[in-house]
Design a protein around this nucleic acid. Structure first.
Lengths: 140, 140
DNA sequence: CCGCATCCTCTCGGATACTG
DNA sequence: CAGTATCCGAGAGGATGCGG
């Protein structure tokens, strides 16, 4: 592009170059797999679900609902279905009475949760700073 | 808790223990700083904005709008305001005519984008797998 | 050029009740 | 117990036009 040269690039170019092949604004978003995958994997509720499933190897529907505080039946089952379809979550049904369904992470899901934990760990460590920033910003 | 012992914990306990102090379902979500910070920092549009600002050290409003393909005026300025308030983004106004406004990352923002890149890099590498999973799931 | 104000649409998500 | 079905309200977000 003509204007791309206007600005200098930051110093971590390798990663970025690779990333922005996909995020290039000339590619319509519906063709960008990263945005596609992201829309599922970085959804607020999905993150919480995945984290809890990372914590407990196996959780049943209502247990999960209790842990993912505030989530509704509808959203929980929606998210679980999508997360299963995308390969993060496994679902095992036991034909007992009453029925028992156990959710867990696939190996793929575990590998994602590992990354996710790095991010949320950062958030946890830095949340005081963010809240302080927000405070300060409000006062100016 | 009584029921916490029912399931075994996964093998990465250190990180998780720390995390789940905050994600404990006994803490209402509005008191959980991680969920709070996350709601801004892992928003779909915010991620794209931050990534582009990580790519170019400085971007003006309309340039940014072009790169973050599909975003509207309203959402872009909303997100920028919040991201600025939370300390990720810097905003510099030049009193020229016509006015010029330059957006960039703060050091804090850069440290977050670094983590973010790990995640999106994972997504980029694994998006084929996700799409394949999704495909397969649909066919069953 | 930046970005707010307005309007209007439309999807997401909450609550509840019900079934295999 | 594990969800689905239905209804409904809130609010996110798109489009546009204007003002600083």
């Amino acid at each position: 592009m003509d204007t791309l040269i206007e600005n200098q690039r930051v110093a971590v170019p390798k990663k970025l170059e690779k990333m922005f092949g996909h995020l290039d604004y000339k590619n319509p978003p519906e063709l960008c797999p990263v945005r596609d995958v992201m829309s599922v994997a970085s959804d607020q509720w999905s993150i919480l679900i995945l984290l809890w499933l990372g914590y407990y190897p196996v959780l049943r529907f209502n247990k999960l609902k209790k842990y993912v505080y505030g989530i509704s039946n509808k959203v929980l089952s929606q998210r679980l279905k999508v997360l299963e379809a995308d390969g993060y979550v496994s679902r095992k049904v036991y034909a007992e009475v009453p029925i028992r369904v156990e959710y867990g992470l696939t190996d793929f899901g575990k590998s994602y949760v590992k990354r996710l934990l790095d991010l949320t760990e950062w958030m946890q460590q830095n949340s005081p700073k963010v809240l302080a920033n927000r405070e300060k910003y409000g006062l100016i």
